[in-house]
Design a protein around this nucleic acid. Structure first.
Lengths: 223, 223
DNA sequence: GCTAACATTTCGGTATGCCGAAATCTCGTG
DNA sequence: CACGAGATTTCGGCATACCGAAATGTTAGC
């Protein structure tokens, strides 16, 4: 039985999704402790579950080493990201959720929606290729069209670019940025960096804002 | 802690829903063995869970006796029926599901959809009061507007009435009836009963059909 | 190359839901 | 009113997924 389709529980789906997500915008594989933090679980639990992922053929498991996904694991992760991001888009487009409100509902629904319903939702939205935060929505076959962009934190000064992605990790941050007019496709000008590792000063629609390290490392601008 | 809101797991929700549903169209309370059959579980499992329902304040539990819901249990059951039926209606209206295809998807989604999304769905449908099978959709406050009707099986002969409800218990039956033009609001004429407990003969849109006992006990006609 | 700090794993335990087999109860029938 | 069929409960077990404490491995800095 080479890892039967239906075998993945919703817990397994979450692990795989988090493992994959970590490498989506940076290269180094995720550590077990970081996995534990992201999933809100004890380290010992993660150790056990990673062994199970390996047994299911979804991850390669080197004791004390890195956690990486197999081809099959990656495929499952992409299916879950498609689900998550389509559902987020749908909540915003069809039900008027704000983009900082969708995450929790999507987190639950991504495990509950049938393939049939998911594709019906995608069709009703015109088969979008990115979600409200600018994250790419993988196609049913796993193809991903990734937006090209540089992290605001690493942008040269001065710099002008449109927002192509904002990390959806922290809803409070999303609200903060929304309040300053920073949204998808908005043009941002990087004006200066305050001395001694201080905030970045950006101009949005003529108004200047200070962005701290956390914010600056959550925003990607078009190159 | 008088039975905190969030305490009900999706398993508990299913038990309560099935217990309530049984009394919706007949009066006698459900037996434990029937509960087991409906939930597809062993009798011993049901015994254990019913004790848990009692501990949660959702059911009254008399050993070897009947299973009945408390006021709180009834309220939870009505919330679950609202969810189930709104979701079924939504799948049909918004995504072109056939009425005999919605049950499984709804069964999963009813536990996953947030209150906020559910009410948004209801609003988008114009706050319907019955689902595609004619079952009443309880209001958020638990109010139910039940259609008045008599079971086709018990209709006098001859009799003419519109279909006000069709039991959604068996999708195959729904398809069978659909194939004979028997749908919600369709006018049905009960023509005769074949002798010795035989089938009922009905006329729908000028065409006669034989309906066996199972079908005849699944259709309600307006009085 | 030793060692402390940190990451990871092992181990014993818990809660939830489920099962089958065996024991027990209920109730209609004789 | 005793009895047996059928319903119900009890009991020991299992799988999943979680935890904390203790043991073990890794690695950076001296």
């Amino acid at each position: 039985m080479s890892g039967r389709q239906g075998a993945a529980t919703s817990v397994v789906e979450d692990y795989v999704k988090v493992i994959y997500s970590h490498t989506e915008w940076q290269t180094d594989p995720i550590t077990r402790s970081e996995l534990a933090v992201r999933l809100g679980l004890a380290a010992s639990t993660v150790t056990e579950m990673v062994k199970k992922l390996a047994a299911l053929g979804l991850a390669d498991h080197v004791p004390y080493g890195a956690v990486t996904l197999t081809e099959e694991g990656r495929a499952l992760a992409l299916r879950m990201l498609r689900r998550h991001r389509l559902i987020e888009t749908w909540l915003v487009e069809s039900f008027g959720y704000r983009w900082d409100e969708v995450h929790d509902d999507a987190e639950v629904l991504e495990h509950a929606v049938s393939d049939r319903l998911l594709e019906a939702i995608s069709e009703s939205l015109g088969d979008p290729v990115r979600d409200p935060h600018g994250d790419p929505i993988p196609a049913p076959d796993g193809t991903v069209v990734r937006p090209v962009g540089i992290l605001l934190e690493r942008a040269p000064i001065p710099f002008i670019g449109a927002v192509v992605r904002i990390s959806d990790r922290d809803p409070a941050l999303l609200q903060f940025l929304d309040g300053r007019g920073i949204r998808l496709d908005i043009v941002v000008e990087v004006v200066e960096r305050r001395p001694f590792g201080g905030a970045l000063v950006v101009r949005v629609a003529g108004v200047k804002s200070d962005l701290g390290a956390e914010a600056a490392s959550s925003i990607w601008l078009s190159a």
